[in-house]
Design a protein around this nucleic acid. Sequence first.
DNA 1: CTGTTAGCGCTTTCAC
DNA 2: GTGAAAGCGCTAACAG
Lengths: 334, 334
Amino acid sequence: MATIRDVAQLARVTPTTVSRVLNNSGYVKEDTRKRVETAIADLAYLPSTVGQSLRFKRTQTLGLVISDISSMFWITVIRGAERFARAHGYSLVLIDTESSEQQQQSALENLIRRQVDGIILMPVSARTEPIRFVQRQGIPIVVLDHPMRDEQVDVVRCDTEQASYDLTRLLIERGHRKIAMITGPNNFATATDRADGYRRALRDAGLPVDETRILYGRFLPESGAAMAAKLLELDDRPTAVVTGNDFIALGAANTFRKAGIRIPEDLSMVTFDVAPEDLVLDPFFTSVLQPGALMGERAAEILLRRLDGQEMPYEEVLLPTRIAEFSSIACPRA
Amino acid sequence: MATIRDVAQLARVTPTTVSRVLNNSGYVKEDTRKRVETAIADLAYLPSTVGQSLRFKRTQTLGLVISDISSMFWITVIRGAERFARAHGYSLVLIDTESSEQQQQSALENLIRRQVDGIILMPVSARTEPIRFVQRQGIPIVVLDHPMRDEQVDVVRCDTEQASYDLTRLLIERGHRKIAMITGPNNFATATDRADGYRRALRDAGLPVDETRILYGRFLPESGAAMAAKLLELDDRPTAVVTGNDFIALGAANTFRKAGIRIPEDLSMVTFDVAPEDLVLDPFFTSVLQPGALMGERAAEILLRRLDGQEMPYEEVLLPTRIAEFSSIACPRA
DNA sequence: CTGTTAGCGCTTTCAC
DNA sequence: GTGAAAGCGCTAACAG
C-alpha cells in the first residue's frame, strides 16, 4: 500500500505538494500537478484515512450498537442508518451486544477507542450509566427504541404504548373480551410499554384487566413458546393474544399449533414488528409495523447535526407506526 | 477525550511509562504503576486505536460489503461475520452497495483507505477486476456466495446448483411434470446456477427442458411478481414453480394470489433462502436453507488465518444446504 | 526502572 | 509554486 511519500518520491516533489494536489488546496504548477497525478495513478495510491483521522480527530465513522441483530426489524434499522451515513460520507461500524450488559460495555469502549464520531445505541437495559459514559468522552450518542425519561440524551423510537393500545383495540372491536399479552422482560421499557397500552385499551373499553393474562419473558422464540404454554394452562383461556414482537409471536404460534389450536379459528393473534407487507405470505400475523429504516436514518441524522456543531436541545423523536392487517384475527367463538 | 500524554502528565511520568503500564511491557515500579493506573481511571482514559493503527499498520477491522442488505438471509451472514470477528478482537465496517457496480467500487476504495485488515465481498457482478484491485493493495479478500471459476481468491458459498437440483427433484417426486423456474439475472452465477440445477434435475428424470419456462429477472419482489405474471400467460401452464430466492417467491406468490391461484392447491412453489424453520409460520414455502451465519463466520475465519500470516492455497469453501419442508407443495391435479 | 527519540501517514502553518 | 517542520496518539529501540 503506497503512502503519500511514495507518491512524492515518484513525482519528485514533497508530500506537501502531493497533499495539495489531492485536496486541491494552494497553488500547484500545472506541470507538477500532472506529474503527481500520474504517480498517484501509477501507484494506485489512496490516501489513508487513519493518517487523516489522527490529524483531524475525526474518523468519519459512526458506531451502531445493536442488542440482537437477529430480528427482521433490526436489519431495516441497520440499513437505514448505513444508507444515511454513507450518503453523508460516513461509514458504519456494527457491533452486536447479544443482549449482554458486559458486551455492551466493551462495544462502547471499543467504539470510543476507535474514536467514532457518534454512536447509535439500542441499549440492552434501562441503565443510563453507559450513556453517560459515552457522553463524558464527548461523543454524541442517540438511543434507539428505548424511552429515556428525564435523560439528557437524544432518543428515536415509536410510541409503542399507543401502538399496543391500537392493536388491542382491534381485537376488542372484533368482539374479543378475554385477551392475553405476552411480552419481553418486565424491567425493559419496550416490553412494559406494550403491556401498558394493552391495559389502557382494556380499561377504555370497560373490560377488566386480569394480570394473570399478562406474561413477561424475553423477546425470543423459545420464550414466546414457553409463555404460550403458560397461557394454555389458564382456567379461563383467552380468545386472543397480543405478542410483544415477531419472535415471541412465532414461538407462541408454534406452541399453539402443536397443541392443535388453529389460528385464527381457535385463537386470534396480533404482534409487533413482522416484516413489511410485501415481504410476507398471507396468512400472516396482523401486526404493528415500526418504520425501522426511518429510525436508523433519523438517529444518524441527529448525530450528524450534532457533529456539524449545531446546538440544540436533546430531543425524543417519536416515529409513527401503522398496523398491517393480515389473517390472524377471527371473531371469538361463542 | 484524554490522550496518553494527559495521563502521563497527571501521573508525572512520560507517555512511554504509561504505555508500558497499559501493555504490561517492561518493568514499572509498583508505586509508579499505581500512580499511572489512578490517572488512567481518573481521566477515564481509553487508548486510541487510531494512534495504534498508524503505528502497527493494523486496524483490527474487517470490511463487509453486501450488495443488498434487505434479505433475511443476509442478516444471518452479517451476524455470523460480526460475531466471529468480535470474538477475535476485530470490528466490522458494513457497507451496502445497493447492487451498484459504482457503489461497490467506492465501498472498496473506502475500505482500502480505512486500511481494513481484510474484506468480505458479496459482489454485485461477475467482474473480477474489483477483486484484483483489492488484492493489489495487499489486502486479503474473500468472495461470498459467488463462484469465481479459475480465480485466485478465496470463496465461501453453497452448492446452489445441487440445491436447486434437489429442490426440483422434490417437485418431480411429488408428481410434477410441468415445472417452471424464475430466478435472478442471467449474467449472475447465483441465478444461472439455480437454472442449471433445475435443468439437470429435469433431464435426469427424463423430462423435457422447456426454455420458455425459465425466466430470468432480478432478485426482487417486483421482479418475482412480473415473472409470475409471464408464467400465467404460457399456453401450457406449469403446475409448480421453483423460485430463485425469498424475494422472488414473495413477489410471485402475490401475483398468483391476485390471479386467484391458490398455493399449493392450484400451484406448488419452492424457493431458496427463506428464514430458518423456527422463524416462520406454517403455511410457508418449502425452501432451500443456506447456512448464512456459517458463511459469514467462515469468510471471516479465512481472512484471520491469512492475516495470521498463514500461507495457504486459495480455497473454495462449499457449505452444505438443506431443505426445510413446509406446505407449499401439493400433488398436481390431473 | 524510566526517559529520550523517532516514526507510522497525513495536513498545515510558515518560509523561501 | 514549493519545501521544511511540526504534530495528531501511540509504541519500540536505545540510553541511562
